[in-house]
Computed example of a mutant assay.
Amino acid sequence: MADGLETFAKVRALHDRASTPGEKAAAASRMEVLARSVGMTVAEAVFKLDTPNLKTRAEAMVDAFNELFNSPEARAQRAKVEADRLAKCQEIMTRYDTEQAVFADTPREAALRAACAHIYEPRHDFEGAYRLAGWDPFDGRDKLPASVREAVCHGWPLPVTVAQAFAEFQEAERLEDDRCAINGGDYSSHSWVEARRYVLEELLDSLPARSMRDLRARLAWMQHVLDLGFSRPAEQDQACLNALRGDVDRMGERIRAAEHSPAIQTGHGERGGLKPSRYVGGQEDRLKSQTVQTGHRPTTRAERRAAAAALIAEGLSDREVARRLGISPTTVGTIRRSADSSS
């Protein structure tokens, strides 16, 4: 408040408390002089004093943030986070001799650093900052230069399976978490480490799963992405989904191949010798009798052909007959054609 209005406010208070007309008139006259001194009328000065001092939007946001940040709940939450960090630091130091050892290059990091030495470009706007062939991790995975990709791919052997890729990714994540905790909650990996991480992400999104271990690793990777709590580019999610579809198709082919393997068809596999649910022309009773007498279900070629012919006569499809008998649909088709030609 300007000095003139401060004095005006005091005189106004005297005016309001005055008990005689003379005192009020003197105060009113003084108020006019003070108002003119600041370029206002008495009414404008009174309005100025009575109007609340409105804050700008930015000031209001700052006040709201400070109120929230300094609330008892917020202080308690920060205290818990710090206590958890210190507890984690104690656990970390049981695995390292010194804090310096936590930040020392691993063999892989040292190899990646050396592989990127020829594309290392110091920045002059920030002390200690640098780029790799003009690239910064904040530029993202999609803008990773070919020279950087080649360096981090050849600097250390690439994983060849999904499981290996996820294991390396998890190892790098754990190390960064350790360093972040020791460094007070703030740590950024070197650019060659981030570039390698981007390459691992691409492998996890695209490598075909060749085993159940690979498939579990892919699902764990997808869960990790989901747990991040933010969306990544849709094309990356689509690539991972396409890879998973391919995994499922390959697993399905293996299952179908196992179902139609000779061991299963001859009764030596897990599903060998499955008895059809219904037969016509007395076949079911005959096969039941054989099972009781011999102690095993009929599995000879002649018995299977007879059972297949009976089910075909019921109007079942080749695939359904094959499913019930544990034989190949191709075999059922051959039996069907033979029956048709003889009829």
Results as ranks from 00 to 15, higher is better:
F69W: 11
S71Q: 08
P72Q: 13
P72M: 11
E73Y: 04
E73T: 03
A74G: 08
A74Q: 11
R75M: 14
R75A: 13
A76K: 13
A79F: 06
K80M: 05
K80P: 01
K80C: 07
K80E: 13
V81E: 15
E82W: 00
A83C: 06
D84C: 04
D84N: 11
R85W: 05
R85C: 06
L86H: 07
L86A: 04
L86T: 08
A87V: 10
A87F: 09
K88R: 14
K88T: 12
C89M: 12
C89I: 06
Q90L: 11
I92D: 01
M93D: 07
T94Q: 15
T94Y: 06
T94L: 11
T94A: 14
Y96D: 05
Y96M: 06
D97G: 12
T98R: 03
T98Y: 04
E99Y: 02
Q100L: 07
A101G: 03
A101M: 10
A101S: 12
A101C: 04
V102M: 11
V102P: 12
V102R: 10
F103Y: 14
D105N: 13
D105Y: 08
D105S: 06
D105G: 00
D105Q: 07
T106R: 05
P107T: 07
P107N: 04
R108E: 15
E109L: 12
E109I: 13
A110F: 07
A110T: 08
A111K: 10
A111C: 05
R113T: 03
A114P: 03
A114R: 15
A114W: 01
A114K: 14
A115N: 06
A115Y: 07
A115L: 01
C116V: 00
C116G: 02
C116L: 08
C116Y: 02
A117S: 13
A117Y: 04
A117K: 15
H118G: 00
I119F: 08
Y120H: 12
E121M: 03
P122Q: 08
R123Q: 15
R123N: 15
E127K: 15
E127P: 03
E127G: 05
G128P: 09
G128E: 13
A129R: 08
Y130F: 15
Y130P: 12
Y130I: 11
R131Y: 00
A133C: 02
A133I: 12
D136K: 09
P137T: 02
P137H: 02
G140R: 03
G140V: 00
G140Y: 02
D142P: 00
D142W: 00
D142L: 01
D142C: 04
D142V: 01
L144K: 03
L144W: 01
A146H: 11
V148Y: 09
V148Q: 02
R149A: 04
E150P: 01
E150L: 03
A151C: 08
A151M: 09
A151S: 10
V152H: 05
V152A: 10
C153F: 00
C153Y: 00
G155P: 02
G155W: 04
W156H: 13
P157I: 08
P157G: 00
P157K: 07
L158E: 09
L158K: 10
